[in-house]
């Protein structure tokens, strides 16, 4: 078997005239945490569904552990743990029953599944909720249960579609911690997200997608290095003055991005640049120096922000 668990070449998916995925190539290595970063509608979820053999491609090739999803859907899904964007937990059942029956759907023996449940409850920190109906769980708990459920079949690849969308910051951090542990155990993660902080936290390597195309590929650090500067200075002059000063600012640094509410200035040294701006007698209402992020990479590649 090759070192790649998933390999796609020229992968294409259309819905009528709309091209959701436009001939993309990518590989996912064993044990890595692979991200698909892009705004809503970039084609991330469609790509995930093709990998999970619940959507058929229109052109190109893709293999998952050497198998073609068009021919071996059930066999491929047996390798995968799927955490969908929208919860699909069984509301009529309790936490334990959800884990149990999901294992049974894979055809696993009762004894095996029952042995697995305790371990998964501990992992998902849901021991105290074991006999609670799913309806009564918080959003974060439901997500953790969905992840635990996806792990019941001991999958080699865990597919997470927007895992923390809709969760509060604390619940997100708990979830990230759990996913880190899985990564340490050698589970290959495939994650879609439109949160750049999530991609930076979790992904070893990612592809940046927009409108069905791959715009760039690499580790978060290398993408930032290749497509952005070390630091970013964010200045606000008020919506009426931003335009007026933009021309002056442009000549002072490598590159600027003018957003509706602020101007981003790309530079190796933000503090020095800010001093120059004051020296030029321009007085921003607010200013902020920060390190470049994947958000800046996306902005550079597409001219748009991730969350619109």
């Amino acid at each position: 078997m090759s070192e790649f668990l998933i390999s796609a070449r020229g992968l294409t998916k259309k819905f009528g005239d709309f091209v959701a995925v436009n001939g993309i190539d990518f590989d996912v290595r064993k044990g890595e945490s692979f991200g698909l970063l892009g705004p809503n509608g970039a084609g991330k979820s469609t790509t995930m569904r093709i990998i999970g053999a619940t959507s058929q491609r229109d052109a190109g090739t893709i293999t998952i552990l050497g198998k073609d999803p068009e021919k071996h859907g059930p066999q491929i899904r047996a390798h995968l743990g799927v955490v969908p964007q929208q919860d699909s937990l069984d509301m009529q059942l309790t936490v334990v029953e959800n884990l149990y029956i999901y294992g049974r759907y894979f055809g696993l023996p009762r004894k095996f599944v029952k042995g697995k449940i305790e371990e998964l409850l501990t992992f998902a920190q849901l021991e105290e909720k074991r006999d609670a109906k799913v309806e009564t769980l918080s959003g974060g708990m439901k997500r953790r249960l969905t992840i635990a459920r996806a792990l019941v079949s001991e999958p080699e690849i865990l597919m997470l579609d927007e895992p923390t969308t809709g969760l509060d910051p604390q619940a997100r951090h708990i979830l990230w911690d759990r996913l880190f542990r899985l990564k340490e155990q050698g589970v290959t993660l495939v994650i879609t997200t439109h949160f750049m902080d999530e991609a930076e936290q979790l992904c070893d390597r990612l592809i940046v997608m927009d409108k069905g195309n791959i715009m760039a590929e690499g580790s978060p650090a290398s993408l930032i290095k290749d497509y952005s500067t070390k630091e970013v200075l964010e200045v606000r002059f008020g919506s009426d003055r931003n335009q007026e000063v933009a021309d002056k600012l442009r000549s002072m640094c490598e590159r600027t991005e003018e957003l509706p509410d602020r101007i981003l200035m790309y530079t190796e040294d933000g503090e020095t640049l800010l001093e120059q701006i004051y020296a030029a007698d321009l007085h921003p209402k607010t200013s902020l120096v920060r390190r470049s992020s994947l958000e800046d990479v996306f902005l550079r590649l597409t001219g748009r922000t991730l969350i619109e």
Binding site: R77, D87, L89, F106, R149
Partner: peptide, 13 residues
């Protein structure tokens, strides 16, 4: 409840 979505993410058809 989207229960079938969950079921069809397993090795069932």
């Amino acid at each position: 409840d989207r229960i079938y979505h969950g079921m069809l993410a397993t090795s069932m058809g």
